[in-house]
Amino acid sequence: MPVLSVRDLVVEFPNRRGVARAVDGVSFEIDPGEVLGLVGESGAGKSLTGAAIVGLLPPPGRIAGGAILLDGERIDALPPHRMRAIRGRRIGMIFQDPLTALNPLFTVGQQLIETMRAHLPLSHRQARERAIAWLAEVGIAAPSMRVDAYPNAFSGGMRQRVAIALALCAEPRLVIADEPTTALDVSIQAQIVALLRRLARERGTAILLITHDMGVIAETADRVAVMYAGRIVEIGSTRAVIDSPSHPYADGLMASIPSLDRPVDRLRQIDGAMPRLDAIPAGCAFHPRCPSAFDRCRVERPELRDVGPTRSACWLGQGHG
């Protein structure tokens, strides 16, 4: 059974002119020990998908349809106090800025111990030993000393390591990592990515990795879902999506990334920009920017379907002239 199963998720933001759909019919599953990358550009709805799963949609956003199942149990309509109990115990979270997860007024040890004892049957002593073990696990030198340090005594990369320990210490089934490496320098990104991947493997934790960085996805994720204007346009194994994307958006996205290994004279660009939520085009939302759009794309919205190694939402190659 998958750890997380999202079915036809719809997230809406009501405003006075009507309702803006930020996430529109998103479905995916994540198995134990699997890393699913959710990738897309700003405004694609990837972070809101993550926020909807943990019940932290910014107001006035709301889940307007679909279902979210954690270990087969629906969690999308739980009251706030039940959801709070699930966050931390069964779902861990890692954010772009580690300081959002760390309380500056408590030592990292206190925070780890408190989190563990809130969710696991441990004595204070056992929890402290485990906190030190966790700090060592995420690569912090001299953990038995640094366990009593405050977050401001750590550098940005070290804070993100502590935040990872904090997200994982209650042994959650699922970790949602929203742009965990975006604020870090490249040399540290690599360390964090490797750490996250190793921990998921060892513990069978499922990870939803939300990022705009295809490089991070390529190194970490087993499967990847590409989002555009609130919908998944292509989903499949990471290598297949990266090496042979079939959706024109995924294809253009890959081609627009400059490469160190294969320099080109001119980057392929996708003209235009992601549509605003209040002006999502009819039919396929990508059609105004798509080099191969035809009549059907402008009126009828494509659904995900199997195309070779991936699933893609595109009319191309589907019975047109």
Binding site: G215, A218, R262
Partner: peptide
């Protein structure tokens, strides 16, 4: 070090 650290999606 820097060059080694750069993730390249189509990494060779």
């Amino acid at each position: 070090l820097l060059l080694d650290a750069v993730p390249d999606p189509r990494g060779l």
